[in-house]
Amino acid sequence: MIEFQGASRWYGQVIGLNDVTCHIDKGVTALIGPNGAGKSTFIKLVSGQLRPTTGSVTVLGQSPFANQEVFRRLGICPEVDSFYEEMTGQEFVTFLATLGGLTGARRSSRVSEVIQFVGMEANAGRRIGGYSKGMRQRIKLAQALVHDPDVLLLDEPLNGLDPVGRREVTDLVKSLGEAGKCVVISSHILYEIEHMTRRILLINRGRLLAQGDLYEIRGLIDRHPHRISLESDQPRRLAAKLMELDGVVSSRLEPISGAVEIETRDPDGFYRRLPEIVAAGPFDIRSFASPDNNLEAVFRYLTE
C-alpha cells in the first residue's frame, strides 16, 4: 500500500530522510526511532505534505503529494497539537469530514460514530481550546478516522493520553489493523508499540536501519550476543553447565536476583538444548527470560 523507492528528503543542507526503500502493507506497522530520526519526515512524505527530494514515494500506487485520490483514502493524525481552538470538537470533526467529501446524513452519522468511538461524546460540544491534552488527542484521532480511510498515519498518537486512554488507543489500532487497514504508527514509547504490532520500521538519523518482524530482526543481529536470564536453585553450577554449550560466550551471576545471565550467539540452539539440561539436573530452573527479545533491545542494538 505504501512504497518508498530510494526516497530522500533534504531540508536545505540538513537531511531528513536518506535513501529509504521499503514497502508497507495492510496491518499495523510501527515507525520507531529517537527524536529527530526522520519519523515525522517519513509521515509527511506518505501524507503528501512533502515531496521526496530524490527517489519516489507512492501510496495506493500513486504519488501522494497534493493527490486527492490518495487523500480520499488516507487519514492522518499529526503529531502537532494544533487545532482551530474556537471550534467545538464536533464542529472540528464535521468541518474536516466535509472537506473529506462527506455530506448530509452520512456525514452526521460518521461524525457521531467516530466521536463515540474515541470516547468524546460527552465533551464534543465543548470548545477545543478548553480540552485537556488527552481530549485533544482523541479528537485528533476522530478527525483522522471520520472518512473511514484505508491508510491511517498516526504520528505519536499516545502522547498525552492517560493509561486508560493509551490502552484504548492501543486496542483501537490493533483492531484497525485486524480490519485490514494499513496503519502506520510512529512512537518512541517502545513498550506500547510492542503491544500493537511486531512489524517495525526502525529509523535513525534519516536512515532506515531495519524493517520487518521484530523477532526476526533481533535474530539477524548476530553481532550482538543474545542475553538470556535464568533463575535456578544452584546458579553457579548452572552457569558452569551452560558455558559448555556451543555459542555461549559468557555467563554471569546477577548480584541482586542471583539469576544467571548468559550471552549466546545461537539462541535457537540454546533453547533447543535447554530441556535436556533441565532434565539432566541436578538443578531446578525456576524461570527464564530474554531481555533482548523486546523492541527496546532491538532499538538499542541498532542505534548504538
Binding site: S47, G48, Q49, A66, Q68, E69, F71, R72, L74, I76, P78, V80, S82, L96, L99, G100, G101, Q143
Partner: peptide, 8 residues
C-alpha cells in the same frame, strides 16, 4: 496539515 491532506 488538516487542510492539505483532504481530497480537495
Amino acid at each position: 496539515v488538516y487542510l492539505l491532506t483532504r481530497p480537495i
